[in-house]
Design a protein around this nucleic acid. Structure first.
Lengths: 358, 358
DNA sequence: CCGCCATGCAGAAACGTGTCTTTCCGAAGC
DNA sequence: GCTTCGGAAAGACACGTTTCTGCATGGCGG
């Protein structure tokens, strides 16, 4: 049987369009992609025939020929033993959502992939580039990707001289320092920290910033750490922190659920917030606007980060890069609510200060 | 230049492996895929050479040849004007996470795609199948996908005779009826509903189940609806519901943030929970375990749904289907906490030394 | 001793597209 | 009048893999 009649079942190919329009394959390709020198009459004719046949170019064939798939990987490193922490917290959900929207707007789609170095999964999909969330130092997946010539942009400043194309991150040190200053301004004398025992960049930078701040103001560090992937462990660690003999009068929690964990622990110990205990936690959840009391949160602006990461990555893919790594720092946002304001609203006080930090 | 020496830059191809191993292309392909009849010596030799060269088969070429890409689409329909509601609520995050894990375990990856019928995005990626979350009646994207022979499995029972391969859903009617019975058992005399004004299946089924229950027990329906995509509107609607002259003494909120919305509204009206107002909301967030008071939540088991959807879809793709649509109902889980139990567990605060709750 | 089958492997045809090169043809220039 | 030039479209190849077909060899039964 001839090749033009053999494909009765299945989708229409470019050959079918060419035959139906009475032109060659080249003309069809050029007409649909706007590439060659064709009169407008031919262009519209071919397009009309293609539409009538319901023709959709094969993504696989196009990818094979052009080398561009229009797919970006989105990976998340694992915390501890958990196999997969995608959208473990609201941060990831928001960031992934923004990244997906930004990619879609430029004609790309996102593929969710694990950060493990399972070859079979990674090699089964043709990637134009990859977004890596919080890569570990010397991440083998990242090095292998760049060795294959795939651009990698990371959310989180990479450590260990990772050869990424670029990165986007918050200034975690400045955020923690500003937040601690805010608590001190509100009257905190001893600020505690609820942190993780993992080695990821966010946890490490935030913790060292806390230690530096303590050193600067001459306060003994008071902190508890726990495996961040275990939600129950957070509640226990919050309890431990408030059970210490050197109980802090203000606490910053690094992870999303810490706000409710600390509120619950404070209730168990009969501590009033904010009268007896000032509270701030890092979270993207709007639920903290409606808790009792509302909790001051530090937002890492995941939407801006997700958008920026994708823009940098696509710029690099499409050859708009400047040759050197592109680095971008997104400012954080401290959303001040009742839990970190010592003065009760009943007493007449000076109007609340403008939220413009240093 | 010959074809074997021309590709110096770029990844190693199967030809390079064949040349380096001193065998033919066929032998390399068979050895790596475990297909042909080869002695184990040749197999291991080829594999060793391929590893040494860092050979990764081209996903695009394999997809073109075999017709299988190993990619599954994951789409979310839009609510109202919002362009993209992926992981708008914790439900989507959990469901997407479970679906991703389940797909990965069977060698597939998930591509996040918008539910709009933008051709250019959909046709730029070769899909083996698609998961559609809560499709609208007669969804054009779904019909076009099945017309192209791509299996579609939906999260949420499809309406409008949508030709999906299968679907997974909760028994929303039974869940709402059981939950309302639970509230009535706890002493509720007039149960209100906080619902959405969208036409998606979840909202519609839950609301009609509520109305049926009211009819059965002879209670006048008391409900407020609002656009579920707008977080501020939820707080306003919660306020409206509690401001009514026929104020309910128990409320069920259909959406994730309704719990804190209703708690805040109750505080504004001086209503104690659960003494004056019983509360249940549908949510997957663990934050409700630590609110004041903890809120009873209805979990739709998104992890089980995400896993089941992917299993059904991959079974259909790999030809394990039975010919008829596969339908699966996942039971819901009512997590009973203090907000829906009229008796207060204790009037004094329990000693702080035992962090093990309940 | 001949034919046959099982084994081990190579050659080559696809998969469907993009694009380089070539061909054709009419019109303009010397 | 012949060449050249440029526009329009066709031919052919390549992308890298899978897989069908087929060739050679050696062991075995008849």
């Amino acid at each position: 049987m001839s090749r033009s009649t053999g494909r009765r079942l299945g989708r229409a190919g470019i050959r079918d369009v060419a035959a139906a329009a009475g032109v060659s394959i080249t003309t069809v390709s050029d007409a649909l992609n706007g590439k060659g020198r064709l009169p407008d009459a031919t262009r519209s004719h071919v397009r009309e025939v293609a539409d009538r046949l319901g023709y959709r170019p094969s993504a696989a064939a196009r990818t094979l020929r052009t080398g561009k798939s229009g797919l970006l990987g989105l990976t998340v490193t694992t915390y501890g033993d958990e196999p997969f922490t995608f959208t473990e917290f609201a941060y990831f959900a928001e960031m992934a959502r923004a990244a997906t929207s930004a990619a879609l707007a430029r004609g790309y789609a996102l593929v969710i992939l694990p950060a493990t170095s399972r070859h079979d999964v990674w090699s089964n999909v043709a990637l134009d580039g990859t977004v890596v969330i919080d890569p570990a130092d010397g991440d083998p997946v990242v090095t292998e990707l760049v060795r294959h010539g795939i651009p990698v942009v990371s959310d989180g400043r990479p450590g260990g001289a990772l050869p990424v194309t670029g990165w986007v991150d918050n200034d975690h040190e400045a955020a923690v320092l500003g937040l601690l200053d805010h608590l001190a301004d509100a009257g905190a004398r001893r600020i505690g920290l609820l942190t993780g025992n993992t080695t990821d960049t966010y946890t490490r930078l935030s913790t060292t910033a806390y230690l530096h701040w303590c050193e600067r103001v001459g306060q003994d560090p008071v902190y508890e750490s726990y495996p961040a992937h275990d939600p129950c462990a957070g509640a226990v660690a919050a309890d431990r922190l408030l059970a210490r003999p050197d109980r802090p009068d203000a606490v910053y929690g690094l992870f999303d659920p810490n706000g409710t964990d600390l509120l619950a622990a404070a209730r168990r110990y009969g501590l009033r917030v904010p009268e007896d205990l000032l509270l701030v936690c890092c979270s993207e959840s709007t639920l903290y606007a409606a808790t009792e009391p509302p909790v001051t949160t530090l937002s890492l602006k995941p939407r801006r980060i997700g958008t920026a990461v994708v823009q940098i990555l696509i710029d690099a893919i499409e050859g708009l890069d400047t040759g050197r790594p592109i680095e971008q720092v997104i400012p954080t946002d401290l959303i001040i609510r009742a839990s970190s304001q010592r003065r009760s609203p009943r007493t007449t006080v000076s109007p609340p200060r403008a939220p413009t930090g240093d």
